[in-house]
C-alpha cells in the first residue's frame, strides 16, 4: 500500500478537526476524499504532509511509519502536496518554480527528465516558462502547482481542491491529466466538486465533521442515496 492512514487525529490549537480518520491509497489508482466545506479535508492532507502536527494516529508510506517526520523529510521520501491556494512562488518564473519543486536531493538527480516530463504533460507551461508565476491565469497556475509537485518525483501525490475557482472546461482538462498520473503513482484527491472527482476516482471516502462516514468504489458511491442527495443534487 503506497499510503495508509490509520486513526488520524489533529486540529489547530485546542480545536480538534479530525477524529480518527482512516483511509488507504494504493499505487496505480486515484482515491478521493469528498465532503462539504469545513469537514476537515484540507486538514487531512496537511496532517498527512506534516504541515499540521498529528495528535494521534499513524501515517505509513509503503509500510514505513512516517507519522512524525517534518514535511521536508516526507517530500524526500516520496509524498508531495499540491496545496490549497496553490502556494506558488509568485515572483519566480514558471521554470524557477519547477526547479524549486525538485529541491530534494532525490529529485535533483532527475531534474532534466522531470522537466521534460512535466512540459510534455503541460505544453502550456513550456510556452510560459519565462513568465512570472504570479501573472498567469488561475488554470495555468493550477497546472504549475501540479507540475511543481511532480518535479519531486512523488510516490504519493496529494492534491487539494484543484477545481477551486476554475472554469468547467479548465477543470475537465485538468482532471483528465490528473487521471493519467495514476500510472506512475498513487493520487489522493480532495474535492468539493464531487461529480467531477467521482468520475476520475477509483475509490472514494466521504468526510463529514472530521470523520469518514462513507466509503466505497467511486462507481458505487455515485449510486449512493446520501451522496446523490447531499452532493450530486439529484
Amino acid at each position: 500500500m503506497a499510503l495508509r492512514v490509520s486513526n488520524l487525529a489533529s486540529g489547530y490549537g485546542r480545536l480538534q478537526v479530525l477524529f480518527g480518520v482512516s483511509f488507504e491509497a494504493p499505487s496505480g489508482s486515484v482515491v478521493s476524499i469528498l465532503g462539504p466545506n469545513g469537514a476537515g479535508k484540507t486538514t487531512t492532507l496537511l496532517t498527512v504532509m506534516g504541515v499540521v502536527k498529528p495528535w494521534d494516529g499513524v501515517v505509513e508510506l509503503e509500510g514505513v511509519d512516517v507519522t512524525w517526520l517534518p514535511p521536508h523529510r516526507k517530500v524526500e521520501l516520496g509524498i508531495s502536496l499540491v496545496p490549497e491556494g496553490r502556494r506558488l512562488f509568485p515572483e519566480m518564473t514558471v521554470e524557477e518554480n519547477l526547479l524549486m519543486g525538485a529541491y530534494t536531493k532525490r529529485a535533483r538527480d532527475k531534474i532534466h527528465d522531470s522537466l521534460e516530463l512535466v512540459y510534455t504533460l503541460f505544453p502550456r507551461l513550456k510556452e510560459r516558462r519565462k513568465q512570472k508565476a504570479g501573472t498567469m491565469s488561475g488554470g495555468e497556475q493550477q497546472m504549475l502547482a501540479v507540475a511543481r509537485a511532480l518535479m519531486a518525483r512523488p510516490k504519493v501525490l496529494l492534491i487539494d481542491e484543484p477545481s477551486a475557482g476554475l472554469a468547467p472546461k479548465v477543470v475537465a482538462d485538468l482532471f483528465q491529466t490528473i487521471s493519467q498520473l495514476k500510472k506512475e503513482m498513487s493520487v489522493l484527491l480532495v474535492e468539493q466538486n464531487v461529480a467531477a472527482a467521482l468520475e476520475i476516482s477509483d475509490y472514494s471516502y466521504v468526510l463529514e465533521n472530521g470523520r469518514i462516514i462513507l466509503k466505497g468504489p467511486a462507481s458505487e458511491l455515485v449510486e449512493n442515496e446520501h451522496v446523490k442527495k447531499a452532493y450530486l443534487g439529484v
Binding site: 517530500v75 502536496l81 519566480m92 529529485a107
Partner: peptide, 18 residues
C-alpha cells in the same frame, strides 16, 4: 533560491521540501 521561496510563500517552500 530556497531562501527566496520562503520569502514568497513559506508554506509553498515547506511542501516542496525546503
Amino acid at each position: 533560491r530556497a531562501v527566496r521561496a520562503v520569502v514568497q510563500d513559506p508554506v509553498g517552500a515547506m511542501v516542496v521540501g525546503v
